[in-house]
Design a protein around this nucleic acid. Sequence first.
DNA 1: TGCTTGACATAAT
DNA 2: CATTATGCCAAGC
Length: 109
Amino acid sequence: MPGSLREQIYEVVRRIPAGKVATYGQVATLAGARGHARQVGYALHGLPDGADVPWHRVINARGQISLRNSPGSGADQKRLLEAEGVEFDHLERIDLSRFRWRARPMPWE
DNA sequence: TGCTTGACATAAT
DNA sequence: CATTATGCCAAGC
């Protein structure tokens, strides 16, 4: 049912353009829930397999893939991001200075 | 109905 | 920029 925080999170994630990434905190803020970053991850965790939600574009504030700190599970995600033009470094990290999605100049203050 | 867990963020060190 | 400590809230059991 729409209106749920989970559904709101899905909507925000759908707005992330290809080639860009967003942090959990940013998604939470855009979803209208400042500080509920954990819920974003939890919502994505419960995502069905056929959902049209680019969850792979959602990463943690460190610019790394965070599925549970498990490298194997995030290998596929990294590949998807690379296919969209996102660059990774040796530590599997993304340069947020360039790939961070700027939806709206709000949290910058 | 109440306690535990969790794809994290932010501030301080 | 990395690590440690603390806080936030919803979903699961």
